[in-house]
């Protein structure tokens, strides 16, 4: 039992990029053949397929015709001039930043709120976490109904005497992106809560009590004692939600399809549309490369910053 908890206690994420030169030669190590199937799958289904697909980023392949000719960086130059791609980039960043912040603040508050003493804390946690395990597609259909012009949300506004605020939420250029955000926060706040609860559990009670006896204000206590100890959970939660946010796809396709007129278009939906809807496979592949670069850069940058804070805090 001790072994397992000990093992759980180190986040696998914390080893991203870290060297683990534990070359102890106690006995003969396990044979590489055991890893062969997994490595084979990795090389074929990931690297080989992606390399084959990525090659198209440098071609003008239409997807429909069997021929593709090499056009160098033309697709990437085109991205810089493409108004829709720029809108998609802005939307992606806007949505991701708001999503990460909102979901983590809410998740942290929920974790702190349901931490101890509550009689129904397990029930409350389950209720908040449940949406996170459901199919994004199914969830989106429920919300599509809620946001419908004749739907429950406008119904509430009418009842509250705010009939003038009624609108077609998913069709409104200024609101559509935020309605998507609401759905995302609703679905994933519970997930962030779980990350923080796990982090909170590792803080020894004595530490809290000592601080309480010292007469520290709750806020001071939170800033000085709880938050620094939560740093690893913060890192995991931020990284996880960042990756989630940058790749949001199903929900947008099901809720707005990227509309109205690109107002909710993101890089992920653009990759999909350029490739599969417009059949511009080369261009779609180039966009996908840009998206993955963005994901990699942002993920590592955020990780570096948080890691630095973890050490310093």
């Amino acid at each position: 039992m001790t072994v397992t908890t000990e093992a759980v206690s180190r986040p696998p994420w914390s080893r991203l990029g870290a060297r683990t030169g534990r070359g102890r030669t106690g006995g003969k190590p396990a044979p590489w053949a055991w890893a062969a199937p997994a490595i084979l799958l990795l090389l074929t289904i990931h690297y080989l397929a992606i390399a084959a697909g990525a090659w198209y980023a440098f071609t003008d392949w239409s997807g429909a015709s069997p021929r593709a000719s090499f056009i160098g960086l033309a697709n990437f130059r085109h991205i810089l001039q493409d108004h829709t791609a720029r809108t998609a980039l802005t939307n992606t960043l806007e949505l991701t930043v708001c999503f990460v912040v909102a979901v983590n603040v809410l998740g942290l508050l929920l974790a702190l709120g349901t931490r101890r003493t509550l009689k129904t804390r397990n029930l409350i946690r389950s209720l908040f976490f449940a949406p996170a395990v459901l199919s994004p597609l199914a969830v989106s259909y429920i919300w599509q109904f809620i946001f419908d012009y004749n739907g429950p949300l406008n119904f509430i506004l009418r009842m509250a005497g705010m009939g003038s605020q009624q609108r077609a939420w998913l069709g409104s250029p200024s609101w559509a992106l935020w309605t998507v955000l609401v759905v995302l926060v609703w679905q994933f706040a519970g997930l962030a809560m779980i990350f923080y609860l796990a982090g909170l559990q590792s803080i020894p009670d004595e530490l809290e009590e000592a601080s309480a006896v010292d007469g520290a204000t709750p806020f001071y206590h939170f800033r000085r004692v709880t938050l620094p100890l939560l740093a690893p959970a913060l890192t995991v939660s931020f990284t996880f939600t960042l990756l989630l946010g940058l790749r949001i796809f199903d929900q947008i396709i099901a809720l707005t399809g990227g509309g109205p007129v690109n107002a909710t278009e993101t890089l992920a939906t653009q990759v999909y549309k350029q490739t599969w809807v417009y059949g511009r496979f080369g261009y779609g592949a180039a966009l996908a490369l840009v998206l993955s670069l963005l994901v990699a850069i942002l993920a590592f940058a955020q990780l570096a910053v948080l890691r630095l804070r973890e050490r310093g805090g």
Binding site: T20, I39, A49, I50, G53, Y272, A285, A288, S292, V295
Partner: peptide
């Protein structure tokens, strides 16, 4: 470490690129 890194990179790589092949 190299094999491990290859696996980790596999998490970030966009599998969508490989769907048609």
């Amino acid at each position: 470490n190299v094999v491990y890194l290859l696996f980790v990179l596999g998490i970030i790589l966009p599998y969508q690129l490989g769907i048609v092949p």
